[in-house]
Amino acid sequence: KKIKIDLKKGPEGLGFTVVTRDSSIHGPGPIFVKNILPKGAAIKDGRLQSGDRILEVNGRDVTGRTQEELVAMLRSTKQGETASLVIAR
Rank of each mutant, 00 (worst) to 15 (best):
K2W: 02
K2I: 07
I3Q: 03
I3S: 03
I3H: 04
I3K: 03
I3G: 01
K4S: 13
K4H: 09
K4M: 11
I5W: 00
I5E: 00
I5C: 02
I5G: 00
I5T: 01
I5V: 09
D6F: 10
D6I: 15
D6E: 09
L7A: 03
L7M: 15
K8H: 06
K8D: 14
G10D: 13
G10P: 11
G10N: 15
G13D: 09
L14A: 02
G15Q: 00
G15E: 00
F16S: 05
T17N: 15
T17A: 04
T17W: 02
V18L: 15
V18E: 01
V18W: 11
V19L: 15
V19T: 13
T20A: 14
T20M: 13
R21I: 06
R21C: 15
R21Q: 13
R21G: 12
D22L: 14
D22S: 05
D22I: 09
S23A: 07
S23F: 10
S23E: 14
S23K: 03
S23L: 08
S24W: 03
S24F: 08
S24N: 05
S24P: 10
S24Y: 03
I25Q: 13
I25F: 06
I25A: 07
H26G: 14
H26K: 10
H26D: 14
H26P: 15
G27S: 11
P28W: 08
P28G: 13
G29H: 11
G29E: 13
P30S: 06
P30T: 04
P30V: 07
P30G: 05
I31D: 01
F32S: 08
V33F: 01
V33H: 00
K34N: 15
N35G: 12
I36S: 01
I36N: 02
I36H: 01
I36R: 01
I36W: 00
L37V: 09
L37E: 15
L37K: 02
L37W: 03
P38H: 14
P38K: 12
K39N: 12
G40W: 01
G40H: 02
A41W: 04
A41F: 03
A42Y: 02
A42G: 03
K44V: 14
K44F: 09
D45T: 03
D45Y: 02
D45Q: 07
G46S: 06
G46Y: 02
R47Y: 03
R47K: 09
R47E: 10
L48T: 01
L48F: 02
Q49R: 07
Q49V: 13
Q49T: 14
Q49N: 13
S50A: 13
S50D: 15
S50F: 09
G51I: 01
G51C: 08
D52Q: 01
D52F: 00
D52T: 00
R53I: 14
R53D: 04
R53Y: 09
I54L: 08
L55R: 04
L55G: 01
E56C: 10
E56Y: 12
E56R: 10
V57C: 11
V57K: 00
V57M: 14
V57E: 00
N58A: 12
N58Q: 14
G59Q: 10
R60Y: 09
R60S: 06
R60I: 07
D61C: 08
D61T: 07
D61H: 07
T63R: 06
G64V: 09
G64R: 07
T66R: 04
T66L: 05
T66P: 06
T66D: 09
Q67C: 03
Q67A: 04
Q67T: 04
E68V: 03
E68D: 15
E68T: 05
E68G: 08
E69N: 06
E69L: 03
E69I: 08
E69V: 05
L70R: 02
L70E: 02
L70T: 04
V71K: 15
V71T: 15
A72P: 06
A72V: 11
A72E: 13
A72T: 07
M73F: 07
M73H: 15
L74D: 08
L74P: 02
R75W: 04
S76W: 07
T77A: 12
T77D: 11
T77F: 13
K78H: 11
K78Y: 06
K78E: 13
Q79Y: 05
Q79S: 11
Q79M: 07
G80F: 08
G80Q: 11
G80E: 13
E81Q: 15
A83G: 04
A83V: 13
A83E: 06
A83N: 07
S84T: 11
S84M: 04
S84G: 10
L85P: 02
V86M: 07
A88T: 13
A88F: 15
A88P: 03
R89T: 04
